[in-house]
């Protein structure tokens, strides 16, 4: 869902920006929305340079993930052993990022590596949010022993150390040479979701507990709304904001988590192209061929930075206290 927000923001951004700032036309559906929390946040956001910077970074990397061909004409699986570990050459037709140990063009590898990171980040976020929201909402709405039970289960998952859990899962369901790209990515997404949902569930539970005693929820009950409708129309729309924001920040964290697992050799594995794998492979040669390490690292850091920055800036915009 975070992915959806981001991409729709991207497509909407130019024309929305064209409308005069802070002016709302009287009457009419869209214009009256202009004073809601979301639109206040939007007005705040579009004045923040950090918002546009992070959005631009994310846009570039998302584009890179979907259409890597736009950024390079080279094939990332083309290896020329003769060029192994060649340093960057800054001529017009040269390899700007140099070659890695196998003679792959590092620029092409790094461009194609974006897909794995973005895929893992986006899907891990969607899955953790879905699980967390579902469990958190249900626990808070049901209350009583159901709540206690579900929160204890959440605590158990919360207590699993991230790396240990990741290593356990990935070594139990290890990849081999024949494992397909999407299966590999799927496994990493799954392990991130299994270890990541408790924090979202807790957050959502707290948020629902805050919304639930509100008069409009009581009023809806008194007017005969079914539990499902109360949750869907009254609780979720009023309780989702914190989760959406934290999920956005988490997206960056999941990308770096994927890199950590790949670095340990248990996340994504070749033939999948990934920044984590590239960093892991080049670490040994850090003194002789530092370019093999530096470029994928920069890309990874930039992507994570982009998402965390966006989450931060959106959180500030949605929090009236920071204004």
């Amino acid at each position: 869902m975070t992915d959806k927000t981001t991409s729709s923001d991207l497509t909407k951004a130019p024309d929305l920006d064209a409308t005069p700032i802070g002016i709302t036309t009287p009457a009419g559906g869209e214009a009256t929305e202009a004073r809601s929390l979301a639109s206040d946040a939007w007005r705040e956001l579009r004045q923040r340079p950090l918002f546009w910077v992070s959005l631009a970074i994310i846009a570039v990397f998302v584009l890179m993930a979907i259409f890597p061909q736009l950024f390079t004409r080279l094939d990332p699986t083309d290896a020329d052993l003769a060029k192994g570990s060649d340093p960057p050459s800054f001529t017009w037709n040269g390899a700007w990022f140099g070659y890695d140990l196998q003679g792959y063009d590092i620029y092409a590898r790094t461009i194609y590596g974006a897909r794995a990171s973005i895929l893992v980040g986006v899907f891990a976020t969607i899955l953790t949010s879905l699980l967390g929201v579902l469990i958190g909402t249900f626990a808070a709405y049901a209350g009583g022993w159901v709540d206690s039970l579900m929160m204890r289960v959440t605590d158990i998952f919360f207590a699993i150390p991230f790396l240990l859990g990741g290593i356990l899962f990935m070594t139990t369901f290890a990849n081999d040479a024949n494992t397909g790209y999407f299966v590999i990515v799927g496994k990493v997404v799954l392990v991130l979701a299994i270890l990541g949902w408790p924090s979202i569930a807790r957050l959502m539970r707290g948020s629902v507990l805050q919304v639930k005693p509100n008069d409009y929820v009581q009023a809806a009950r008194a007017l005969g709304a079914s539990p499902w409708r109360i949750i869907r129309s009254h609780i979720l729309p009023n309780a989702m904001a914190p989760v959406l924001i934290v999920s956005m920040i988490n997206l960056g964290a999941y990308i770096s988590a994927e890199a950590s697992l790949s670095f340990l050799g248990i996340g994504l594995t070749p033939p999948a192209i990934s920044w984590g794998v590239a960093i892991s492979d080049s670490l040994v040669y850090i003194r002789t061929a530092p370019h093999m390490l530096i470029f994928p690292s920069i890309f990874l850091s930039l992507t994570v930075l982009g998402f965390i920055m966006l989450g931060d800036v959106v959180r500030d915009a949605f929090d009236p206290k920071t204004r």
Binding site: S36, N214, D215, Y216, Q218, A219, A220, A222, L223, S233, H234, P237, N238
Partner: peptide, 15 residues
């Protein structure tokens, strides 16, 4: 059917 004390908070703010 029932109406509540605090009309200010008896309506869902997001719809």
């Amino acid at each position: 059917s029932m109406i509540f004390q605090d009309a200010l908070s008896s309506l869902n703010p997001v719809f």
